[in-house]
Design a protein around this nucleic acid. Structure first.
Lengths: 237, 237
DNA sequence: GCCCTCGTAATAATCGATTTTTTTGCTCTG
DNA sequence: CAGAGCAAAAAAATCGATTATTACGAGGGC
C-alpha cells in the first residue's frame, strides 16, 4: 500500500502537481484510489467496500462515496445500485475494443494536431520525447517494479502528440482510454516487459511528427499500439 | 421474487423504459438532475448549491453530492474543490469542438457499424427510423415545447446507427457527446426550429445505411450535423 | 475615494449514527 | 439432497449535525 500522497490534483481535472498539500479529502482520496486502481493495487473486479476504504483512507463514508462516484464516469469503477462499488473488470474482448478505439481516435487526433500544431507545440514535443528517452522504465534495476516517473513522462509524451487536435472532447477521451490501457498493461505485464525497442518507436513517432509527415506518423503510432497490444494480449493467456 | 429486483437502473448505465420505479435516492436524483441540465431547466453556468438542491429534491446532502459527482464525469457538471458544483458552462468555441468531434467519431462509428451490422441491426434501425418519423417534434402544437418522446426516439435512432461499431468506448463517447449536443440545442433553440426538412434527412441517412453505402451514409450524416450545427450557431447570436 | 483587513454570514465538506437493503447461513420441507 | 423460507449479519444508503472554507461587506487607514 502506498501510504504517501504524492500529488494532489483536483478530482475533476488535471492541473497543479506542485501542491503536495491540502485539498478536499475527497480529492485526495480520489487521487489515491485512482492511482491504486490504475496501478492494479486494487485488482479489476475487486469489491470496494465502503467500510474497508474508510479504514484504509481514514475518513468518513461521504468522501469515499464521492470519490468513487467521480471514478465511475471514467470507467474505472462500476457502481451498482444498492450493491456498492467495484473496480471495473477487464476482459480480452474489452481490451481489443480499447486498442481499436485508441487507434481510431488517436489517428484522427494526431492528424489534426500535425495539421494545426505550432512551433511551441513542436518544442513541447521535443522536450517530452527527450525526457521520456532519458527516463528508466523500471526503478532500481528491478525489472518488474514500474517507475512512476516513467509512467508520467510516457503519458505526457503521448498526450502531447495529440494536444493540438483542437477538441477538448477528443483529448479527454484519449486521456481516459490511455489510463484504461495502463490498467491493462499493469494487469498483464506483472511478468515481463517487451524486449523490442519501445524507445526507438517513440523516437520514430516524434521524428515523423516533427517532419509533419502525417501518414508516416500515424502508421508508426498505430504500429506502436498494435505491437504493444499483441504483446500484452499474449500475457493475458 | 423476481419482480422485486427487475427494474433497478443504475445511475451510471442506461435507463430502462419502465421508469418511475424504485431505485436509490441517489439514482433518482441523478436522473432528474441530468434531465434538468440537458433540458436547460438548470442553466449552463448556474451554481448548484447543495442546500438548494436538498430542498428541491428533498434529500440529505449525501445523495445530492453523489449524484453531482456522477454527473461531473459526463461533463455536465463542473466541480471545484471547496467551491461546490455548477452546471458546465457552454461556449461557441466549445460548440465548434463538439460538432467537429461528433463528425469525427460518428463517421468512424458509422462505417464500422455498416461493415459489421447484421440483419437484426438493420431491423432495429428500420424500427427506430419509423418510430422517429411518426413522432411529432413538438408537443401539443406548441412550437417551442419540446416533445420528450421525440427526444428519446431521436437519440435512439442516432445511437442505433452506430450501435454495431464494435467498441463500447466509442459508443459511450458518442452517447455523451450526443447529450452535450442536446444541451446546446436547447440552449440555442429556445426560439425556433429549423425550417428545413430534418425528417427527410433522417430518412436519407437510414436509406443509405440500409443500402450499406458507407460513403453516402457518412456524407449525409455529417451534412445533417453540419446543417444543424450552423443553424444552432446562428441562434447563439 | 479606494483598497485592505477582519469579522460574519453563507456554503461546502465531512463525520457519526441510523435506516434500508442485500447477503449469508441455517433449518425445514418434500 | 435441492430448494424455499427466515433471521441474523453485513453492507449500502441516507440523514442530521458539526466543522472547515470561502464569499461578503462594513469599517478604517492612506
Amino acid at each position: 500500500m502506498l501510504d504517501r500522497i504524492k500529488s494532489t490534483k483536483s478530482a475533476s481535472g488535471e492541473e497543479s502537481e506542485t501542491e503536495g498539500g491540502p485539498a478536499s479529502l475527497t480529492s485526495r482520496i480520489y487521487a489515491r484510489l485512482r492511482a491504486d486502481i490504475i496501478s492494479g493495487v486494487l485488482e479489476p473486479g475487486a469489491k470496494l467496500k465502503i467500510e474497508d476504504l474508510r479504514q484504509r483512507y481514514d475518513s468518513g463514508a461521504s468522501p469515499i462515496r464521492e470519490a468513487l462516484s467521480l471514478l465511475t464516469s471514467h470507467q474505472l469503477v462500476e457502481r451498482l445500485d444498492q450493491r456498492g462499488f467495484r473496480v471495473s473488470s477487464i476482459s480480452l474482448e474489452e481490451f481489443d475494443e480499447l486498442l481499436k478505439t485508441r487507434c481510431w481516435l488517436e489517428e484522427r487526433a494526431l492528424r489534426e494536431s500535425i495539421a494545426h500544431g505550432d512551433k511551441r507545440w513542436e518544442e513541447e514535443l521535443v522536450i517530452a520525447a527527450y525526457r521520456l528517452s532519458r527516463a528508466p522504465r523500471n526503478s532500481g534495476g528491478n525489472p518488474v517494479a514500474t517507475n512512476d516517473e516513467w509512467e508520467k513522462l510516457h503519458k505526457d509524451f503521448h498526450l502531447t502528440l495529440i494536444s493540438r487536435c483542437g477538441s477538448r472532447f477528443l483529448l479527454n477521451s484519449c486521456d481516459e482510454l490511455y489510463d484504461q490501457n495502463v490498467r491493462y498493461r499493469k494487469a498483464a505485464s506483472s511478468v515481463a516487459y517487451p524486449e523490442r525497442d519501445v524507445r526507438a518507436e517513440h523516437e520514430g513517432i516524434a521524428d515523423a511528427v516533427l517532419a509533419r509527415d502525417a501518414d508516416r506518423a500515424v502508421q508508426r503510432l498505430v504500429a506502436h499500439y498494435t505491437n504493444t497490444g499483441s504483446f500484452l494480449r499474449k500475457h493475458f493467456e
